[in-house]
Design a protein around this nucleic acid. Structure first.
Lengths: 165, 165
DNA sequence: CTTGGAATGTCAACAAAGCTGACGTATTGT
DNA sequence: ACAATACGTCAGCTTTGTTGACATTCCAAG
């Protein structure tokens, strides 16, 4: 664990340092979403569709409720997005077998194609940033991001990761 | 604590690693905005107001055009936000002396009070994350974020930083 | 077997915050 | 004199979020 005390640490957590971190998050998030946004703008979709597609791709067969918890929006808001995706044949909603109230969501071929297109763009930027910063920086990047999450979200984040092995 | 594999560059940039980075950004940004959002929800303001207040506080006397470039929105969108802030007495818009076409923006006492309230909350979270992750992680965090920005935004980011010394 | 609650979907209405396009007014610079 | 710049504003549209109300379907407990 990091030495919290030391001469350099007097400067370390100044408001100015924190403010720079805040602005870095703001500008970086803009870059982070810029490429998918450009692609989405050419069709009738937005960032909300991207998020839904991403997490369905990540956990095929996930339920609507699970998705709601991950995305943190209302079911009405998600439903509007999901409906268009289902109508457009990008997402398949299948009634659950064990619990028929649940709908299990997965991407169709077409949906996976779009997912690939979007995440290729986003991964390319992430890859470039990782390469430019180097492995150690990436480790730090991840540590700070994880520490910044709400506890519930951190739990979900780890849960998704574990289920992916 | 997740080992983000250090030496092995074969595993280092797998799509899975990148995907985890993408999701970390998503969840972390939610945490990043959560506290100010909660405060703003109690009044008639939103995230857009927060951003305007932040950057006006950061660069008192800045012009509308400058703010537009930083925020990356249309003047109509910014104007709507700015108008309410001026009407509510949080922001002062003063005609430029050198160039009378320009409006120079700064926070009033009341505006600064709100800015402090919002940024205190956001800084507290950032400080906690920084402390939990440690100085080296913070350095990496910043490096990756800077590498992720669009070049124009990176330039602005540095510009703001320099002007603040 | 009935009934309460959970999971899902849907309708309606609304708000925040972005966008385009068009237009007007000062002001500045050429 | 004239074009360009900075700003504001009106009007209308889109995306994505919100509440609230209500129906349906189904599981599970009494």
């Amino acid at each position: 664990m990091p030495e919290v005390q030391g001469g350099e640490n007097l400067l370390f957590l100044t408001d100015e340092q924190l403010r720079q971190g805040i602005e870095a998050m703001f500008f970086a998030y803009r870059g982070f979403t810029a490429d998918p946004d450009r692609i989405l703008a050419t069709m009738a979709y937005g960032r909300a569709h991207h998020r839904a597609i991403h997490f369905i791709s990540r956990s095929p067969g996930t339920t609507v409720n699970n998705l709601l918890n991950i995305l943190g929006v209302t079911k009405q808001s998600l439903n509007r997005v999901l409906r268009t995706l289902v109508e457009d044949g990008l997402v398949e909603s299948r009634v659950g077998t064990a619990d028929k109230r649940e709908r299990h969501l997965k991407l169709t071929e077409e949906g996976e194609a779009l997912e690939r297109k979007l995440s290729d763009a986003q991964r390319a930027r992430m890859r470039a940033a990782y390469r430019a910063a180097g492995p150690e920086a990436v480790s730090g990047f991840r540590q700070v991001l994880e520490a910044m999450m709400d506890p519930e979200m951190r739990r979900r984040y780890y849960t998704i990761r574990e289920s992916e092995v």
